[in-house]
Structures are given as structure tokens and as C-alpha cells.
Design a binder for these strands. Structure first.
Lengths: 345, 345
DNA sequence: TTGAAAGCGGTACCAA
DNA sequence: TTGGTACCGCTTTCAA
């Protein structure tokens, strides 16, 4: 009665030993029969298999792990799972894990380094075979000790680590460039940008692509049309009015999923009756983007591919663990080809 | 080199024994020191603690589990995690799990009984301390054998089980009733309904509440204004035009999250230039509902409360496992008080 | 305060 | 084709 959370402790766990005793044979024979070892007479094998089924026997993952066979547990560390991108990635990756018979353990970090650290420690305790993580935005890098011995795959963002980790990043340079061109083609010439601050690599890169885009369509970079900060909902929500009223922006490109949601939220609530048309390219591609106006444009992230490459990098193929050397993969984002205007009524 | 997925097998796992050997003492002393047992001299204790920290020691969860101490693993079975409701629930519940030091293992069932079965079996293998699940819509109930010995908490839907399981359901009767009243108050008198078919308990209950609502505002039930079927996106998407064109519906109540999304999707794409106003109450409360028109009404689900009660029912309080008897909780949904009209332009 | 032994559920290895 | 033994990491129990 020590295990208070299990209701039927009295019913005793069914183990190969209990089955063996029950059948009056050696537990080794039971082990062999239940592991597909050929060295068992078909008579006893059938006997054992039936007994095991009737008793509801399941192998103890703990015992296997303790022998050094590793686990089938994969950790996934995300800031949250409500963000459209994270949710869709988690969904796609969870499906892959299920397909490969892996357990997906999800921990939310809230983008806080301390929670990240705790989660990683716990994942080491249960000997996770791999950890897929979006590293915290502003984390110090000194957690190498914690991560040691773990097969780490960094997602989207990438932090320096001593242990050789893989990383999967999104190459959105062309997509953002295309977004500028697209908006320019639609006739807009005051194209604003809201993105993460330069302390983040994504903040630097995406801004650079925006800048390159402007250059290639013959527009000057106007610092007043650019807002950078912590990449969250509020940056987009509060930034849009500033760009519209203050700077006369006529179009906007968002450099982050949350930013994009914040911007759309405030744009949708805007009914100034002007009949003005505003150009918009969001980041990410949530379903509702296509519902607005004649469909807003968005930078489409390669979520399914990301999930597929992740599982590949983990190296779990039909239960056979393979050795996959650490690697870096960059997947291309694409501008979803919709009109991309919103009209204020 | 058997564990191919771990890169530094050669660096040997750090165990209490390896630490003991390293320090030239008994592994028991190390065990005591690292488990907070008072019977260790503070000298050796400090010595051991430092060594453990330097070596990056973590307790083996497998070894603890094998001794019968149980695990800190909680399983969550959902049809998917992109659905707004499931994603938000998973997010809230994952946070609770993190707060309590639990591992959340997520498996997606796609609402298929076979996947559900496989996942449950796997969760038994790793001795999950509890399993929270949305039972498949059309599953046969004969899986008692599989579930035996597992602490099961059924979410939203509820299936008969021999082993005594808890269930957490949403009581949306009043909210749906209120929705009808709300739409009637706005002046609509041809209020349609799209919901799950009667084979599901939610299908029966929600329809009944809709019916009751009509009665209470003095409207007759018109079978032509009701569409029922598998509660998915397409039911809403294809149902709306049928109700509008075919039956002259002027308002709609949705009896499911996916249905609601499908309906909104087609409504948003509708630009017939009529200037007609259409009443709408969605199911669930995704952020974008508030963006449409002056804000669409939705039936708000008590997600945070649901997550809180779930963790409570699991009985994990600060690492202390408590015995919580199986129970059924019904949480109330509420009509989010927004205007709830959409105008076709 | 410390140590030695036994056992949790499996499998590799050797012996019969 | 079978059975016995030892071990994986940790804690409970008993002995020193």
C-alpha cells in the first residue's frame, strides 16, 4: 500500500517471474518467449503467450532502462503550446513520435531559463533518448553541465553548447524579401516592419532580410517605420497604431508569430471608416489569416518538414536506434501567395 | 557502445556506486547523503554533495520506479493538439504538471480507438501514475483489460469503464440556452444549430439545450434549421450555406469547436454585398472571435479550471502522492458577452 | 555513523 | 530447448 496512486497494488504487478512461477517454469523461458527469442518450443511459447495476455502483462520499461537499453522517451521543451507555430509543430512531432512508438514528454519553459534548466534535469533523470528544445531567448549559455550526455536538438533558435547538439532552423530570408517585393508590387511604398530586437539572432536576420527587400525594390530604409523589441503579442498590438498614426505607414511586415497576432488583432478592431487599404504580411500561417479580407498573406513555416527532420535526426527508425551525427538543417519558409490587403471600414 | 543514441557512454553514467568508489566509501552512505537522510556526518555529506554536483549526478528514475516508488509521469491522450480547446487545455495542464514536478507525456489519438489502445499500453509500460484522456468518439468499451491498474481521468467525453475512473465534463447547458436567448434578444428568429450527431452524449445534450432555449423564447423547433453529423470542421463549413441559402436561417449556434471554426471560415469568406446581418454564437473562445465584426459571441470553456481540477484529481501535491477517490466534476461553460453579429459586405 | 545484503524486472551469459 | 546466475541503480532492513 505504499503506492497510493495505484489502486490495485494488491493485485500484484504481473512480471515474467510471476508468470513463470504461475506456470512452474523458469522465468528465463518466459522472458525468451515474450521477447521473440526462437529458442522456445512452440508449445510452451503458446502457453506463455496466452497466460501473459490473460493476465494483462506488460514489459516494465523501468527494468529495460535500468539494464542500459535506453528509453523510448523524447523530451520537447517549448515556451508554450498555444502559439500557433508551437502548437502545430508539437502536433506534427507528436504524430511522428507515435508513429515510431516513442513517448513525447512536453515541458513548457515560458521562455524562462530556470524552468528550462529544471526540465532538462528531469529529462536526464528519466534518461530521455533525445531532447528537442527551443532555447530560451535570453538564457545564459552555462548549462553545458546539465545537458551533458543528452542528445539535444535545438529548434528555431540556436545557442552555443559544448556538447555537440544538432539544430534545425528556419531560413526565412527569401520569404521576407519576397514579402517586401509583394507589398511593393501591390503599390505600397511605406512598408513598416515590426520584429524582435537585435539581441536575438532571428531579430537580426529577419530585419536584414526586410532591409534587403527594400533595397531591391528601390526603397530607402526609414528607421521610423521599424519597431523592434521583445517579440510578443503586445509589440505588434501597440506597434501598429504607432506606425499608422505616427509614421503614416501603409503596409506592414511582421517578424514573429506573436507579433503578427498582436498586429492583426489591432488591425481587425480598427474601423475608422476611411476606406483606406493597408498592406499586411504576417509571420506564420494560422487559418484565420485566410479569412480576413480576401486573405492576408503570411510567411508559411515548414512545420511538417521540421517535424520529419527532427524525428530523423533523433534516429529512431522502427524501434531501431541508429547513430545520427549532429547536424544543422535549415528549412525554407515561403510567402503564402494571397492578396494581403485589409480595408478599414 | 550498445546505446547508440547516447554519445558519451564511455563517460559512464554517474551513480551512487561510482561516486562511492570514487570517494572510497560505501554506496549506502552516498545514498543517504543524497536522499537527505540525517544519519550522515556533515563532513562526508558535504564531500559527497560536492562530488555529486561536480560530476553532474542525477538520480535514476528507472531505478526508483523499479523499486516500486512509482513514476512522476502523467499521460495525456488527445485527438489532436491543434484544435484550440485541446491546445489550450494541454498548455494549462502542462503548466500544472511542471509546477508539480510531473512529466507530461502526450499521445495523439486522432480519435482512433486503435491508437488510443496502443498509447495506453505504452503508458502502462512506463508505469504512468495517471492518464488523462479524451476517449475516442466511437470507441467500443471493451478495453477494460488494458486500462486496469491505471489511474484514469476522462475528459469532456465519458465512456463506461469497469475500473473506477474519474471524469471531468463541461456543463454547457445554460450557456447554450443563453446563446439562444441572446440571439433572440438581438432580434433573430430563425436561429439554426449545427452540432454532433445523437450517437454522442455531447450531441444529444447540446441539442437539447438549444431546443430548450428555443422553447423558452417562444420559438418553435424547425428541423430544417438543424444539422447534425460528425463534429468536424467540414460539418460547419458545408452546413452554413445549406442553412442560409436553403432555409433562410438568420442566425446560428455551433455545438462544437471544429464545427464552429468551419462555420466561421465560410462566413468570413462570404461577401454577397447584401449588407445583411447574421447572428452567430461559436463554440469555444479562440482569440480571433473577438476580432470579427464588433466581436462574435462564443461559448467560453472553463479551461484553466479544468486543468486545475485535473491535477487535483491526480493527487500530486508537492511531490506527495495522495489518495484521491475517483470522482466526477462538471464545470460550467459561459456565454462570452459580446455582440455576436457579422455583416456581409 | 557506516556497511553489507537483498530485491525490484528484465536480459546476457553460461551450463545442462 | 531449458534453467541458473549475475547485474543494471537504488533503498529498506539488519548488523556492526
Amino acid at each position: 500500500m505504499i503506492l497510493s496512486t495505484q489502486e490495485n497494488d494488491l493485485a500484484k504487478r504481473v512480471t515474467i517471474k510471476s508468470i513463470a512461477e504461475d506456470l512452474g517454469i523458469s522465468h528465463m523461458t518466459v522472458s525468451r518467449a515474450l521477447s521473440g527469442n526462437p529458442n522456445v518450443s512452440s508449445q510452451t511459447r503458446i502457453l506463455i503467450e496466452n497466460r501473459a495476455r490473460d493476465l494483462g502483462y506488460v514489459k516494465s520499461a523501468a527494468a529495460k532502462a535500468m539494464r542500459g537499453d535506453g528509453t523510448k522517451i523524447v523530451g520537447l521543451l517549448l515556451p508554450n503550446i498555444t502559439n500557433d507555430f508551437y502548437a502545430r509543430y508539437a502536433n506534427a512531432f507528436a504524430k511522428e513520435c507515435d508513429r515510431h512508438g516513442l513517448h513525447l514528454v512536453i515541458h513548457l519553459t515560458d521562455d524562462e531559463i530556470e524552468k528550462e534548466r529544471v526540465s532538462i534535469r528531469q529529462l536526464r533523470e528519466i534518461q530521455a533518448m533525445a531532447v528537442v528544445m527551443v532555447p530560451c531567448a535570453h538564457g545564459v549559455a552555462r548549462q553545458d553541465r546539465d545537458i551533458e550526455g543528452l542528445n539535444v536538438i535545438q529548434l528555431v533558435r540556436s545557442r552555443e553548447m559544448t556538447s555537440n547538439s544538432s539544430s534545425l532552423v528556419i531560413n526565412d530570408a527569401e520569404a521576407i524579401h519576397d514579402a517586401v517585393v509583394h507589398l511593393r508590387t501591390l503599390g505600397f511604398d511605406r512598408i513598416g516592419y515590426i520584429g524582435a530586437d537585435p539581441s536575438l539572432s532571428t531579430g537580426r536576420d529577419r530585419f536584414q532580410s526586410y532591409h534587403n527587400g527594400l533595397t531591391s525594390v528601390g526603397l530607402e530604409l526609414d528607421a521610423n517605420l521599424v519597431i523592434r523589441g521583445a517579440p510578443n503579442f503586445d509589440l505588434g498590438f501597440s506597434g501598429v497604431p504607432r506606425l499608422l498614426e505616427g509614421q503614416g505607414a501603409t503596409a506592414l511586415i511582421c517578424g514573429g508569430v506573436e507579433i503578427s497576432n498582436g498586429a492583426i488583432s489591432v488591425l481587425m478592431q480598427r474601423h475608422d471608416g476611411s476606406g483606406d487599404t493597408f498592406g499586411f504580411v504576417g509571420y506564420g500561417d494560422p487559418a484565420f489569416l485566410s479569412w480576413i479580407g480576401k486573405g492576408l498573406a503570411g510567411i508559411q513555416l515548414p512545420i511538417e518538414e521540421l517535424a520529419a527532420i527532427t524525428i530523423q535526426q533523433i534516429g529512431a527508425f522502427n524501434g531501431e536506434a541508429r547513430d545520427v551525427p549532429p547536424a544543422t538543417h535549415a528549412l525554407k519558409a515561403e510567402l503564402a501567395g494571397r492578396v494581403g490587403k485589409i480595408t478599414f471600414t
